[in-house]
Structure formats: C-alpha cells, structure tokens
Design a protein around this nucleic acid. Sequence first.
DNA 1: ACTCTGACGTA
DNA 2: CGTACGTCAGAGTC
Length: 877
Amino acid sequence: MTDSAKPTLLVVDGHSLAYRAFFALPVDNFTTKDGQHTNGIYGFLSMFVNLVKAEKPTHLAVAFDTSRQSFRTREYAEYKANRSESPAEFKGQIPLLQECLAAMNVTVLTKEDIEADDILATLATQGADQGYDVLVCSGDRDTIQLVTDDVTLLYPSVQGVSQLKRYDPAAVQEKYGLPPQNYPDIAALVGETSDNLPGVPKVGEKTAVKWLTQWGSLDALLENADKISGVVGGNLREHLDDVRRNRALNRLLRDVELPVGPADLAVQPIDAQAVRDIFARLEFRTLLPRVFEASGIVAADEPVEPATPLPTATQLDPAALAAWAASAESELGVTVAVDGGRPARIGLAGATEAVETTWTTDAAAALAPWLASDAPKVFSDAKPQLKALRRDGLAVGGLAFDALLAGWLLRPSLPDKSLADLVDRYLGEKLPEADPTQLVPETEGATPGQLSWFTVRVVEALRAELPESVAEVLTDIELPTLLALADMELAGVAVSHEKLSGFSGELSTRADALAQDAYAAIGREVNLGSPKQLQEVLFDELQLPKTRKTKTGYTTDAAALADLQESVDHPFLALLLAHREATKLRQIIDSLDVAIAADGRVHTTYVQTGSQTGRLSSTDPNLQNIPVRTAESRRIRAAFEVGSGYETLLTADYSQIEMRIMAHLSGDPGLIEAFNSGEDLHRFVGARVFGVEPAEVTPFMRTKVKAMSYGLVYGLSAFGLSKQLRIEQSEAKQLMMEYFARFGAVRDYLRSSVEQAKIDGYTETIFGRRRPFPDLSSPNRVLRENAERAALNAPIQGSAADIMKIALFHIHEQFAAEGLASRILLQIHDELVIEVADGEWDAAERIVRERMGDAATLSVPLDVQIGRGANWDDAAH
DNA sequence: ACTCTGACGTA
DNA sequence: CGTACGTCAGAGTC
C-alpha cells in the first residue's frame, strides 16, 4: 500500500496495454458507423479509468513507442524482428487514443528512437528519487527490473487488461526467487521469445535462478561458466555472447532526456467538452460518466449543482411581467412552454433573475408589444415557440440568438437536440428534468423562467466559442431563415385526399395482382417485402447468381435485380420489381394522406439542424422526397394543390446551382464561359471534352459529361463513373482525363480544397459555414477517403444551401414588406413552392426571380426557372 | 416497445 | 469505389 502522505506518480505504457485490449475485445462490438475500430481505445481507457479511480495518483503520464525502430533495433537488427507487423486496424487507434488522453489533460510522452518502457524507467527513477510513490503499469516483463520499495509494477494478467497484478519486491521475490534487480539476469539467460532474443538452450527460470543464487551475480556466473558441468554448462559456454547481448538490450534506460519531470505531471482537470467531442466521435457512451467520475467531475447522469445557484422564477402577473421585460437593460432569455401547439406558460430571464407567468389572453395582450419589439431576445429552439405565439397572433422581433442553432453550427455532426444537451455540454451541468416515467415526479422539471436562465448562460458560453464567420452565418442566414420556416410550417400545403386515396386504391389492387403472379412464378407465397425471404427464393431456390454482399447476405436492391435480369430473365424478377414500385408509391401516398390536417393541408417540420452541410431536412412528413421521376409518380405531385383563396402555385428552382458554385469556387475559365455563353451546360462541356461543335454533341455524349460533371461534386472515381455509365473503367478514366484537360482548374480546386481542409480540420462555405473533418488525417484508408469525398462536397452543397436560405428569407421578407398575401410553402433544396394570392402573380414572380437571382454574387449568373400551375405537377416546367 | 438493416424516395 | 437526407417494413431484441 502506498503512503498517503507521499505523492503518487502513475506512469503507463500506452502502447502495450492498448495492444492487449485490442486482442481482448471483439472488434465487432467496437466499430463506429463509419468503420473506425475502437476496441483498443475502449479497452485501454476502461482499464485506465479503473486504475486512476483505484490508485488516485497525484501525478500521471502515459508513454507510447514512436515506431518499431529504436536504438535497440540499431544495436541488434534481430530485436523484435519476429514480431509480425501490428495490424493496421490497431495502428489507426493509437492517434485517437492519444487524442482522448489529450482531452483528458493526461500528459502523453513519446521520444524518437526510445521505447515507452525507457520513458517509464526514467520517470520511475526520477520519481523515486524525488520522494514519490511510483506505480508503473506496463505489459512488458522487462519493467520488473524497476520494482523497488518505492516503485510498484502493475502488470496485466493473462485474463486481460482489467486484472492487474501488483509486483512489489516481495511479490517479485516470491514469483522469481530473486529480487527485482536480478530479473534482467534471469531474462538474459532464459531469453525472451517475444523480443526475438534467444537465451541459453535448455535453461529455464529454475536453472537461471539456481545459477544466479549460487554465483551471486550474472557477471560472476559468466566468469565461471567453465565450471558448470553437463549439457547446460556447455550450452552456456556456447551462448555467452547471446547472454551478454540480452542483458545489454533488456536494461531499460533510466536517463532519457524528457521535456518534463515528475513534478510537471500533476493530475489536471479534464477538458469535459473535448472529452465529450472525441467520445461522441468514437461513439463511446457508457465510458463518459466513468471518465467524469474517475476524474472527479460529476457523472453526466447525476444531478449537479449549477456553478451559479438556480434562481427560483418569480411568478408575476402579466402586467408586471411585461414591465419587468421592458425595463431590462440586457438581452433576455425567452422560453414559451408549448402545449398542444399553443403557449401554456412563458418565462423570461437575465443572468441572475427569472420571472414567469401563465399564458392567458391578458398575458398575450400585455406581452405583445415587448415581444414584437426589437428588444434583444435569446432562445433555445425558437421555431416551435414562435409558431405557438404566432397561432395566438403574436409576432416576435429582436431574435438575437438561438442556442440550438449555434450548437449545431459549431458541431453539425452532434445530436444536440435540446437545451438539456447544451447545458450538459457547454456548462457541464444537469438541467433539472421531470422523470417522464413517474406519475408523481420526484424531481420537478425546470420551469420556463429557469429554462430561460439556463438559455442565457448557454448562449454566453456559445458566443465565446463561435468564430466570427460562423456567428455571421447564425445572425445573417440562420435566424432570418428560422422566421421564414416558422411561417412556412404554419401555412402548410393543400393536399387532395380524394386524389391520393383513389391512387392508393389503384396501387393496392395492382400490387395484389403482382404479388399473386409473383407467387405463381415461384410456386409459393413469400413476403415480398422481406429481403431475408427474398434471398432464400432467389439464391437458394432459384439458384440465381449471387449479387453484391450485404451484412446479412446478398442484396436484392433494384439495381442488382436489374443486373440479374440481364443474365437470367426469370419472370419473378420483373414482377418483384413492379411490386416494389407499386407498394413504395402506396406507402408514400398513405403516409401523406394521414398527415393531412383538419385544414386540408399538410404541415411538415423543417429541421434546421438536420444536416451536416447546412441543408434543411423535412420530417413528419418528409416533403423533400416526394417522387418526381416517373410519369406515374408525378400523380402524387398533382395532389399538391393551390389552396382555396389563392390563385395558383409557383415553383422556382435554381438550375445547376452546384455546378455554378463549382465554376465560381474553381474560377475555371471554361466552366465560367459555359455558364455565360447561354449554351446548354452539358452540351457546351460535351463539345469541349469531345472536341466537336456544340450542335454535334450527341445525346450519348451529353449523358456522359453530365454524369461526369455531377459526379465531380461528389468525389466520383473512374470506377464509380464506369459503373454508372456502364462503360469500361479505361473509358471512364479516358473521359475524366479529357474532362480535366479542358477544365483543369476544377481539378486543381477540388484537390486544394481537400488539402486546405486537412490543414484547417474543417471546410468552409462561401458564407463561412464550417464543417469539421477529423477523419481527413485518419490512417484508416476507407475512413479517410470517405472523409475526403465528403469534404470535397461540403463547401459546394453547403454554399448552395446558404444561397437558397438567403433567397428564402429575402422573398419571405419582401412579400411581407410589399404587403402580399402570397406565401412560401415548401423548400426542396434548390426549389421553392409558393402559393400566389389573387392578382399577385406578377409581383410574386418578380420578387422570386430577383431575390433568388441576387442571393449571392458569383462569377457566373444564378439562373432561376419558374413555373405556374394549379398543382405542383402542373407548376413544374 | 425498442433498435438495426435493407431498400428507396428526393436534391 | 458518389454527397446529403427521412421513412418504411421486417427482423431481432428486450
């Protein structure tokens, strides 16, 4: 046991312990959705946390090898030469493990040419000299030589890294029969197979200990080697040089020059946010509270006292609340508790004080002026709250900040979906929440006033972290967009139940007939919606050629079935595909039908934080994936109609916005000319690539360059291009080369943008929206290349999203400013659907065209296509 | 009741 | 071995 009066220094060999964990834990359970293996990291950290918790070191460091090469391999080339290369799946985990340790503010030590155990030996020696109790944790037996009264070795047992055996001098004596300083002598005689150091043949631990005890030391033994009889004596004499070499190599260096000494290794508080970030990336959930607990930070699922005491919200009457708000000198946090889409309570707070009141007609009347005023207000997730207020006829002005949006802009990949998540992440506190599983909650949830108080504090923390360009995206793009989205969701879009239900019935009848025919074709009934049962039919019973593999067998997706049809035209295949198509359409129709509200309209929810690139997403129902490609599917779009009291629908979309952004960002003169020439883009590009006149570009040529152009935006490879166009890979490669020969700046831009992202760690849109890409420097090839393609696409897709958002709220604002009743209903990434009021077509069309056209100034024009019709299908052009 | 997977709709 | 989303049904698990 350690003396509690003395400081305790714990030094750990990170490499060897992580390596043991790597083999101990099943990799299947420790792989992120992107394919990053994490079993070594998890196993190490789990062990490490237990160790820190149990030993409570005051000083701490983890050492790593830099490579397989060290001074020992230079002295003896065979050293560790028998070790197979450590698997790439393991190597890739080491930098991430070091990132975790850095986030935990644990000192990580490495030194070129020096092994981790030499660093441990040096620190252990210094520590013992300076009066520390030293704990050395390593999986290398050579560290036994470090054990003294002041230095204890913690060695993983064969059961795994979770069980550590303690070696103090007595334990070493008991196990090996000699004191620790003699262990290297034993090892030199016996040899170490794992280090490729052969010892004396036939000499094991028993003999070695006997000899060393008899002669007192290794030197004495070697000097008297000729006095030892028998076969082993002969063996010893033949291997004297091996023993001397072994002894030289297994002596750990105790005087390595290090940038730090024990005193510099005092345990630091962890960086809670950095730990959360890296753990989220590695998809560690249960480890987080354990790390917090071990490090003295309270676990995330235990209630904690806020750094500042939580104020009790003062209950005021509406007039007093309005007066309190009006007299506030700083911005206020605002929280509207919403019940059934209507305001139920409202709470306001500054930095120290919170007030609230029940929502009544009186409250609405009293608060309306302040809410509508420019007085600055901060929210967390303002949209549903603004919608609730708007249903009561109240408008909100002075929207200065939305914590949820800011959190997303900072970390678009994280699932921070509520104020509670932000309070946890940015304040390290626990938002009081009522337990929904208890009828009579033990803990009261925070009241609206208290939520506003938390909001104010979270906003302060977020502002401190937001880079200027990202803060501008919030203020200049996201917040105005939020206001437009709230109105769009409230408006909804009129959908004809009659049209839908008729179509659904047709499709059901057809699907049933197709199913019967399909059963007849194979002689039995199966569930055509079950990939598992289909696999049995296709690959076992019908013995069709195997398709692409999936986790659970072989794919039955449409592309694979179409491929199958080319080789074996079994009638079942066509029937199955037709059945899929019919049932899929029916599904979409039925889910749309049930979403029609009492007002005859469908009200989607736009998730403003729903993508990593800056796009919106749409849920309940998703109105951004309504079919369009086939004539039949467009009957669904025909059910989206102009509402009563309005004249017509207007659709407006950007043509080729992503390619235009590509032209702008790359500055490619050819591409810029293409957009300024007025010629059809793909015809122009095709003419250049194939060296013909635009008029001579065949449809086939046009298809190819079109696929190439769009593929570029996604990081398409020659392989992918060849597959999509069903051409030889060599031809695809040739096409790409011709393309880049004419549009070289495009390739230069794509390359340099990924390079820049590697340096910065993030990509940036034209307007400064950022997306982090930690995996760009991953040693895991699949992971890295996935990140590279996403990083290539992010500024392009993201800039397009920025431009559309700007156009969206400009149109929304101008409709209001000009007093139009026309309104925006839908946004589908590059398209808007607008409901035009009687007599407003000309004004609406002008505004839409102008604001979409001037949302951004690029080196190429933004082209806008506008259509008009009584329903969405007719309004398409 | 929950989560995961395959499949498929959109830009 | 082309980016970004959401939804559904089936299948497996609790």
